[in-house]
Design a protein around this nucleic acid. Structure first.
Length: 886
DNA sequence: GTTCTCACG
DNA sequence: ACGTACGTGAGAACG
């Protein structure tokens, strides 16, 4: 063993100027300061900047010792000598001050020593240690945002100064200083003596700037030698200034000199880099809401100590598995996200005592075991109920999970919806499960790992699920969301799973024929457009199209995007009269969209059974709506030429039809209900045309007869605007009026519907007070930016506070209807199947003979879903295809 | 992987 | 003074 202080190998040492780096990090993202806050409103931009810089440094080389030095306070031996030192500096912003102790805490998490010393600046600490290290033959990297520290550079000490931001560094070695300034590092002090420093507020010699100082020091070597040989200079204004300011020059040099003999209470032996305490660091990142950092850390340091003992499940010990006690964790593992097509690679079934894992899915075909697993009375905990239900159904299982960690987490906070159990568990302070990505890889590297690695991972998932269940259950109760979870979302997962599993039939012959027609039209348009442009180009490229329109053809630029000219519909419509090419491009765009996304895209999505099986994402949107992927069945064209594609959606059985039912004006009805506005409620109770009603109100008309179509159109836009969280700017832009006019409309609206204004104000106030808003069924959305000092972010949060209870409550309502629908359909002895949901609309297929009854059943369930103070209105249609059912 | 454009409620 | 309507997903281009 090597004795203390006796070292045979040079150490690699990193010394960081903590204050200066934190300041740089803070100001690097100062303009979007409020984008970086945690849920307590604490700013984190500087912490994140320092953290990123550290990560980069630590990745670039191995350090044996690291110290981050901080200033102890504004009073130092320098201020004692010269009262004005660093005087006149602006007060450090509170948003930065609050981060300094947190930066230190983060350093501790990284296992890095930090230090400060009364009366000395961080520079002096670094200077002193750098000198000691240099003498010991170690290699030192000094990192700072302050150029003054370059005076410390030697053959063994490199000074890296941040360039822009904090991650790009400029490294100063003696040779680099020489090349850049023509002096040695030590002579930088002499330069500062002559030049002074405006930011540190000391003077130097009058009229001497960098150029003159460099010339003088190159000639004389130092301030002292300069004054010793002042006689060599011929008489000049400069010489007079040098003589007059001699004392200032000497003092300034003294101030600029970084001490290398500060009375430190620590030494090189005290700054060993121990490496991070992952647990502490992870907790810190979580508290700061530093998601990227958490993600980068991944499962590092998550103790494989948390190895879960497991038994391989075989046909011989199925009986033992069936002895497991409630609650039981269950998970079907797939490597890809589309569970309609993915292979189930294995499964885990576990309770608090025992864990069984298997890669043999045929075991699930065991009748007794399948019945045991699917017993509705069994408390079964899963992660993503719908995924397990659908995949299970493919294997012949009929599961009845009573807890879903993903759904629960989503309801607690819609931001916490990671599809990775390990990551989601970490959000809830369970750290023992690595992310799937770390075990299976991703992209091209995705693979099934070695059998024991895979089984162990599955076993860990079982343990994580069991650990999460009680905490999430408690939190749901705390947030008054238990019913929302148990009675709505969990049953909905089954309903949605059935809809997806059923799928909707697509007549691909119809699409193929459409495709042929469209290809022809596109080819013709393409040639015409090339002729107008004078040359061929890629007309699907907004970039190339921009060049053609605004450079080749010289059309006026209406709007720019971040990267170039905007060529969106709004822009092209304004240019329509300017050139015949525009109309052709608009038509091309329309047809091309229909062709690529719908005609081709939908055919590609058809499964071997001739059906489309979309996946509804139940835990994605911030409002509680569903979304739909692979393919998106919620944005099939409903107007214009594109609507023709709806002809391709047909019933899956002969003699059947498609049936659709949609809520009329559900969002405005919800608004009338939750605002309690008497005027708006009256309009709905009397089933009046709400847009015409609003037109009468804001235009001050006596009767509905006076409402012109244009007034109604504008009033409709106002109604929409209200739902979105109105702004005069947005309304003005939407209907092409001035901002002043829009403002007048809004004022008129609020005068006529006074309780709507109260509701808007109340929601913003609620968001400010409690940090979140809620829907009718207590679905929550947190709005961090509501306190932001950034106007944009704050305004956005305010509009969201107004919109989310409306959009989210409408989502609650249709979800209630969906959950009740299967029982109602069965009770009426109908064969009808619910196939799709499009936010305020449900689509079914059923025998043509059932249509009349189906209308009563479906409209009845939808009407009665949630009792509001205004009636809900449901409109229905049916026909041979989706096109005809609208 | 990001940006632009456009489809839906 | 700031500069946007709310909520989504997919295809194509491009770095």
């Amino acid at each position: 063993m090597i004795g203390k202080g006796v070292r045979t190998v040079a150490d690699n040492i990193l010394l960081i100027d903590g204050n200066s780096i934190t300041f740089r990090a803070f100001y690097a993202t100062y303009t979007s300061l409020d984008r970086f806050t945690n849920s307590d409103g604490v700013h984190t931009n500087a912490i994140m900047g320092v953290n990123n810089m550290l990560d980069n440094l630590l990745a670039s080389q191995n350090f044996d010792k690291i110290l981050v030095a901080f200033d102890a306070g504004s009073k130092t031996f320098r201020t004692a000598k010269y009262g004005d030192y660093k005087a006149g500096r602006q007060k450090t912003p509170d948003e930065l001050l609050e981060q300094l102790p947190l930066v230190k805490e983060m350093l501790e998490g990284h296992g890095i020593v930090h230090y400060e010393l009364a009366n000395y600046e961080a520079d002096d600490i670094i200077g002193t240690l750098a000198k000691q290290a240099d003498a010991a033959g170690d290699h030192v990297l000094v990192v700072t945002g302050d150029r003054d520290l370059t005076q410390l550079a030697t053959d063994r000490v490199t000074v890296a100064v941040t360039k822009k931001g904090v991650t790009e560094l400029e490294e100063y070695t003696p040779a680099y200083v020489q090349a850049k300034l023509g002096v040695t590092p030590r002579q930088i002090i002499d330069l500062k003596g002559l030049m002074g420093d405006t930011s540190d507020n000391y003077p130097g010699v009058t009229k001497v700037g960098e150029k003159t100082a460099i010339k003088l020091i190159k000639q004389f070597g130092s301030v002292e030698d300069l004054y010793a040989h002042l006689d060599d200079l011929k008489a000049s204004k400069m010489k007079e200034h040098l003589v007059a300011d001699h004392d200032q020059a000497v003092m300034s040099k003294d101030l600029a000199t970084i001490r290398q003999d500060a009375p430190l209470t620590i030494g090189l032996d005290d700054i060993d880099f121990k490496g991070p305490d992952y647990e502490q660091l992870r907790a810190f990142y979580q508290r700061m809401d530093m998601r990227q950092a958490l993600k980068r850390m991944g499962g590092q340091g998550t103790a494989p100590a948390a190895q879960v003992e497991y038994t391989e499940l075989t046909a011989d010990n199925l009986a033992a598995a069936m002895q497991l006690h409630a609650p039981v964790a269950f998970e079907l593992e797939m490597l890809t996200e589309n569970y309609h097509t993915a292979k189930v690679e294995g499964f885990v079934v576990a309770d608090a005592e025992h864990t069984f894992v298997s890669t043999d899915t045929s075991l699930l075909q065991d009748m007794e075991f399948a019945l045991w697993l699917g017993d509705p009375a069994r408390q079964l905990t899963v992660f993503d109920a719908k995924r397990n239900l659908v995949a299970g159904r493919h294997l012949g299982l009929d599961l009845h999970p009573d807890f879903d960690a993903l759904l629960a987490s989503y309801l607690l906070n819609p931001d916490e919806n990671s599809n990775d159990l390990g990551q989601l568990a970490r959000e809830h302070n369970y750290d023992a499960l690595p992310a799937d990505e770390d075990v299976y890889g991703k992209g091209a590297k995705l693979h099934l790992p070695d059998r024991d690695v895979f089984c162990n991972h599955l076993a860990q998932k079982g343990a994580a699920l069991l650990a999460l269940r009680p905490r999430l259950t408690t939190e749901l109760a705390n947030q008054d969301e238990t019913k929302l979870f148990t009675d709505l979302e969990l049953p909905l997962a089954r309903v949605l799973g059935d809809m997806e599993y059923n799928g909707i039939s697509l007549d691909t012959a119809i699409l193929a024929e459409m495709g042929k027609q469209l290809s022809g039209s596109l080819a013709v348009l393409e040639q015409q457009i090339y002729a107008d442009a004078g040359h061929e180009f890629n007309l699907n490229s907004p970039k190339q199209l921009g060049v053609v329109l605004f450079e080749d053809l010289g059309l006026p630029v209406v709007k720019k995007t971040k990267t170039g000219y905007s060529t969106s519909v709004a822009v092209l419509e304004q240019l329509q009269t300017a050139h015949p090419i525009i109309q052709k491009i608009l038509t091309y765009r329309k047809i091309s969209k229909i062709q690529s996304t719908y005609v081709v895209g939908l055919q590609d999505a058809v499964q071997p059974d001739g059906k489309i099986h979309t996946r509804y994402l139940q835990t994605l949107t911030q409002t509680g709506r569903l979304s739909s992927v692979d393919p998106n069945m919620q944005n099939i064209p409903a107007r214009g030429d594109g609507k023709q594609v709806r002809h391709a959606f047909v019933p899956s059985e002969p003699g059947w039809e498609l049936f659709s039912a949609d809520y009329s004006q559900i969002e405005l009805r919800v608004l009338a209900h939750i605002s309690g506005d008497a005027h708006m409620q009256e309009a709905f109770k009397e089933d009046r045309d709400i847009h015409a009603n609003t037109a009468m109100k804001i235009f001050g008309l006596k009767s509905a007869d006076e409402v012109t179509p244009d007034m109604r159109r504008q009033a409709k836009a106002v109604n929409f605007g209200i739902v979105y969280g109105i702004s005069d700017f947005g309304l003005a832009r939407n209907i092409g009026i001035t901002r002043a006019q829009a403002k007048a409309f809004i004022a008129g609206y609020f005068e006529q519907y006074p309780q709507v204004r109260e509701y808007m104000d109340q929601m913003v106030a609620t968001a400010r007070e409690q940090g979140y808003v809620e829907t009718l069924l207590h679905r929550r959305r947190y709005l961090h930016d509501i306190h932001s000092r950034n106007f944009n972010l704050r305004s956005f949060a305010e509009r969201t506070a107004m919109n989310t209870p409306i959009q989210g409550s409408a989502a609650d309502i249709i979800k209630v209807a969906m959950v009740r629908m299967p029982a109602a359909v069965a009770a009426a002895h109908l064969q009808a199947r619910m196939l799709l949901q499009v936010h305020d609309e449900l689509i079914f297929e059923a025998p043509a003979t059932e249509m009349d009854q189906l209308r009563d059943v479906v409209a009845g369930v939808m009407d009665a879903a949630i009792k509001l103070d205004v009636p809900l209105k449901v409109e229905t249609n049916h026909g041979r295809t989706w096109f005809d059912a609208k």
